[in-house]
């Protein structure tokens, strides 16, 4: 199996896993929400309602394809597509498991080991805004446009604090490659120990970047009906919703890799490279990711939504100064 073939297979697999995880995140979300609200949740399709996501997908596919007459057709279709693409592109630099060595060839469990992986993450995440902006604007609807503009300004604002929190992380690890960063955190020496404040800032920003509650103002139903996807129906809406869950998954994976050691875990780190280690490492990685997904859902159903000015104040007046402070403290520690 040549490297290229493996790469292609791996990328397809990652896409599949992403979609699968996202699919079942919706299920988990509904189940958990039901649990938190003392309900049963979906339980008809399949055992425990496990087939519910499939049913939803089928439903979305068969819904009427509706494109408003006054909208910009091409962009109206391009919007969700861009959003989905950018969401899926993110996973390219995430190392999902330790390298696998079979018969002397090394198979990297990572689509692309960019030496500027974090920057790539950033670039692609910032592109996600286009999907929302284009879709929201193309709808030719006041609420959609407002939602889109909210989303864009929210993303841009929180990107700054996020970037600054990562700057201090990079200062500690002195590498921009995600693989390097994960490799450095063998055993228990996770970055969360060195960067607690950075982690806090990052996770808050991650919530805002994924437009999840308590920062889901762009799609705030009470104010903007449905925000940027008000006019969307059928699978285009499905793409928007789905991409959001992919964002959740990727964010969780990134959080796990950056601050919680990724596939690193005591005992697992000490294993010799091989199939066992790769499998165990992958398991560890997905366990941590699952924990963060759970955290995302938990918080969504626990905390009330912010007001828009509160959101902006938090971003510009609290998180950014805190992140700068964090950079300074980190620099101080590095100097000492």
């Amino acid at each position: 199996m040549s490297e290229l073939t493996f790469k292609i297979i791996f990328i397809v697999a990652i896409f599949g896993i992403s979609l699968f995880v996202a699919m079942y995140t919706t299920y988990a979300e509904r189940k958990l929400a039901a649990f938190l609200q003392d309900r049963l949740g979906p339980n008809r399709a399949g055992p425990f309602g496990l087939l519910q996501p499939l049913a939803d997908g089928v439903k979305l596919f068969f819904k009427e394809e509706f494109i408003p007459r006054v909208s910009d057709r091409i962009l109206f279709i391009a919007g969700p597509a861009i959003f989905m693409c950018t969401a899926l592109m993110t996973s390219a630099v995430i190392p999902f498991a330790p390298d696998l060595e079979i018969n002397g060839t090394t198979y990297s469990m990572q689509a692309a080991d960019l030496n500027v992986g974090i920057l790539y993450l950033f670039g692609v995440v910032s592109l996600g805004v286009y999907g929302i902006l284009v879709g929201g604007w193309a709808s030719n609807n006041k609420f959609s446009l407002l939602g889109a503009i909210r989303a864009a300004s929210q993303n841009i604002s929180y990107e700054l604090a996020m970037g600054l929190s990562i700057v201090s992380l990079v200062m500690v690890s002195s590498s921009l490659s995600l693989r390097d960063i994960v490799d450095q955190q063998s055993g228990w020496s996770w970055n969360i120990i060195y960067q607690p404040l950075g982690f806090l800032i990052f996770i808050v920003c991650a919530f805002a970047e994924t437009n999840r509650a308590p920062f889901d103002l762009p799609e705030c139903e009470t104010e903007l009906i449905g925000g940027y996807h008000t006019e969307f129906s059928s699978m285009k809406l499905g793409l928007y919703l789905f991409a959001e869950y992919i964002h959740v998954f990727i964010s969780s994976a990134v959080l796990a890799s950056l601050y919680f050691g990724g596939y690193q875990f005591p005992y697992v780190s000490d294993l010799d490279p091989g199939l066992v280690k790769t499998l165990l490492g992958g398991l560890v990685m997905f366990a941590k990711t699952g924990f963060f997904i759970f955290l995302f859902i938990w918080i969504r159903w626990t905390l009330p939504r912010f007001r828009y000015d509160q959101l902006m104040n938090l971003g510009w007046k609290v998180l950014i100064p805190l992140a700068v402070l964090n950079v300074l403290i980190t620099a101080l520690f590095i100097l000492i």
């Binding site: 920057l119 592109l127 286009y130 604007w137 503009i149």
Partner: peptide, 25 residues
């Protein structure tokens, strides 16, 4: 590679969003 990503972040991610913003606005 570094410049490639900086190009995307700065131009595509920030500057063009600003343009888009202004045009929509």
């Amino acid at each position: 590679q570094f410049l490639a990503l900086v190009n995307i972040i700065v131009y595509a991610g920030a500057i063009m969003v600003l343009f888009l913003f202004v045009i929509m606005f």
